[in-house]
């Protein structure tokens, strides 16, 4: 598999521990900046980032819409693509949760596959959790940042990957003079729900409006989140909260910490 060849441009890469970045379909297609920011964060804490070219999707669209067989084949493809890496990093709690919590269940009936799924589950991390748990002290800090931040906890970061406190701590350590303000209903769903927002557009809009109002009430300059799905959904209402910038936490940190991203390399 050619995707396993070390393709990193840095000569020092051989000494760095390697991680695979599983971008997720939303980041891959629309929010490509999140992928580069994730790579920048991982690079900044001393990891060599590999983006396996065989990667596609975690399979949630099929899994959550009644196509278990389709989901199983996508899961097997993803397992085969990622299984040889020591760590697999996912810039989404939703997709990380799918791999960590649902793959083993989905493949329960096939013993060998279940074992492989568990193996992958154990070494798959949500990006911010990985950065925080492994090497947060390696990140630079920016004491000049004095603006107000709020954070939208996606349902999957609350319940699937449990990455909530880590976010607050990481922001506090990297941006010690930032003012962090909690949402009043931080556990409320924003209404994205994958295909839910397509099937029940008006309910999803109502829930997004509630969330946007909550975000707006904080008077924050930035609202971060760990899931591009929520961000894409909430962005439908971008006009109604023009003073707040809604960003994936990786993009926000990469920008505020002035991390070099590989994005500009093609220029």
């Amino acid at each position: 598999m050619n995707n396993l060849e070390p393709a990193s441009p840095q000569s020092s890469a051989a000494q760095k521990p390697q991680v695979a970045l599983f971008a997720t379909c939303l980041v891959n297609t629309f929010h490509t900046k999140v992928g580069f920011a994730a790579a920048a964060l991982l690079d900044a804490i001393g990891y060599s980032v590999e983006v396996p070219t065989q990667q596609t999707c975690c399979g949630q669209p099929n899994y959550n819409n009644g196509d278990h067989n389709g989901a199983i084949t996508v899961a097997k493809h993803t397992i085969e693509t990622l299984t040889s890496y020591d760590h697999v990093i996912v810039p989404s709690s939703s997709c990380a949760g799918m791999i960590k919590n649902h793959y083993p269940r989905l493949l329960d009936a096939e013993h060998d596959w279940r074992r492989k799924a568990e193996g992958l589950a154990n070494k798959t991390w949500e990006l911010v959790d990985f950065v925080y748990q492994k090497k947060r002290h390696a990140l630079p800090s920016n004491a000049d940042f004095r603006k107000t931040i709020t954070h939208h906890d996606s349902c999957s970061s609350i319940r699937e990957t449990k990455v909530t406190d880590q976010v607050r701590s990481l922001i506090a350590e990297c941006l010690p003079n930032a003012h962090f303000k909690e949402l009043s209903e931080s556990e409320a769903c924003c209404g994205f729900g994958g295909t839910f927002c397509v099937k029940f557009g008006d309910i999803a809009s109502q829930l997004a409006t509630n969330k946007i109002t909550d975000i707006g009430n904080t008077k924050a300059d930035y609202c971060t989140s760990l899931d591009s799905g929520c961000n894409a959904h909430l962005n439908r209402f971008a006009e109604s909260y023009e003073t707040v910038r809604l960003q994936h936490l990786a993009v926000f940190l990469a920008e505020q910490l002035n991390l070099a991203t590989f994005e500009s390399a093609k220029d």
Binding site: V27, T29, T32, G35, F36, V51, T53, F262, E263, K266
Partner: peptide, 10 residues
Amino acid sequence: TFVQQWKKSK
């Protein structure tokens, strides 16, 4: 896509 961009940048 991100994967395509990444490949190009590499």
